[in-house]
Design a protein around this nucleic acid. Structure first.
Lengths: 151, 151
DNA sequence: CGCTATTAAGTTGTGCGCAATATGGTTGCG
DNA sequence: CGCAACCATATTGCGCACAACTTAATAGCG
């Protein structure tokens, strides 16, 4: 334990591992909270965006909002379509684009998950203000990592 | 935008999405930083644990440390074995257990990644103290979520 | 108008994560 | 000892993530 050659490699000293573990713990919690909707966590995120805009969105717009590419979104959207929650239609004005829109079932699902954010908040054991502060820190982190990555 | 039915579902208000995005941004950064070692980020975490203990570890111990199960670890460890970084041997004293130990190449790799934590820290644009505070907050978050999940 | 560059989505392949299950080894109880 | 719980690991199946590539459509320039 003492005198290791590279102390900076200690798992417990690093930020990356708790971050990774926290994401997985949150995802696991969502499995429980979303049980009954049939949604996975990434599918829930897509639905959040669609509920928010109430407009048909292209795959690319969805991807920009969620930082996901077509390799992830295409099969995910096909599953949402198979579940009857969204429609996927080529944009008549630009046949390259696929517009994703909510079905009636998809729209109706919003009510069923309205309590999820509160339930998750309660599971995290932090106040709303702490959550918002943490959110801001993580958002900044992402911005910095993006910059570093593109440099 | 204004007057939506369930404002608590707004993506930008939620903690979960930046958390999810931050983990993916960190993982992406690791791809760059670990290029040349042939390691993925989860494989790097396994190596961190092995470098730390310097003792053969069972799959279960590794899993407890990293919160991963055999379904994830078994194939990952086989890839590390194929890369010549670890050995996998049945425990002679208990043939149910598989002991994972470092090869010489595996041990030698530690030096090559010694600079990675510092490089990642620089990419995140936060001070060491901020990183440690964030680490503690996330660790607490995980503890709470575990409690909620098992309740 | 015709051709090239660009863009959008889809496809393929690899590696997680994890639930559910299978397989084989060990323990402990009668 | 025999056998029924229990335990450790492995396997299977599904759904992400994402890089690299393909296909099809559009834009823009000469």
């Amino acid at each position: 334990m003492s005198g290791r050659t590279y102390p900076q490699l200690a798992l417990d000293l690093q930020l990356c591992f708790p971050l990774y573990a926290a994401t997985r713990a949150v995802t696991k919690r969502y499995v429980t909270l979303l049980k009954g909707t049939g949604l996975t966590y990434p599918q829930y995120l897509v639905m959040l965006v669609l509920w928010e805009t109430e407009e048909p969105l292209s795959v690319t717009s969805l991807g920009q909002r969620l930082r996901l590419d077509s390799g992830t979104l295409t099969p995910l959207l096909k599953r949402l379509e198979a579940a009857g929650l969204v429609r996927r239609e080529r944009d008549p004005g630009d046949e390259r684009r696929v517009l994703v829109s909510l079905t009636e079932d998809g729209r109706a699902l919003e009510e069923q998950v309205a309590g999820v954010p509160h339930q998750l908040g309660a599971s995290m054991g932090i106040t709303r203000d702490e959550a918002l502060a943490l959110r801001d820190q993580l958002t900044e982190l992402v911005d910095h990592l993006d910059t570093a990555e593109s440099a």
